[in-house]
């Protein structure tokens, strides 16, 4: 399925979960958060959160700032 991941078009396997996307990105375990179509996905739902065709994913991590 085609999604927009952090602003870039991206093809994901069908039925990919948020956890799959994080693994694909090599995301660290901590300091990471995910929003799909401007809705924050709680950590506890990453394993089962569905991603729909055309979804806009934002995957963020901790950086220096402020």
């Amino acid at each position: 399925m085609n999604v927009v991941l952090n602003g870039e078009p991206r093809e994901l396997p069908a039925e990919a979960t948020v956890a799959d996307v994080l693994a694909l990105l090599g995301a660290p375990d901590r300091g990471v958060a995910v929003a799909i179509d401007a809705e924050v996905i709680p950590r506890g739902e990453w394993e089962r959160a569905e991603i729909r065709e055309g979804a806009r994913l934002e995957v963020v991590q901790a950086v220096q700032g402020g």
Partner: peptide, 14 residues
């Protein structure tokens, strides 16, 4: 701390 789009090339974990 701040949040930004994940950077797979980032060095070290803040």
């Amino acid at each position: 701390v701040a949040l930004r789009r994940i950077d797979p090339a980032a060095q070290g974990s803040i």
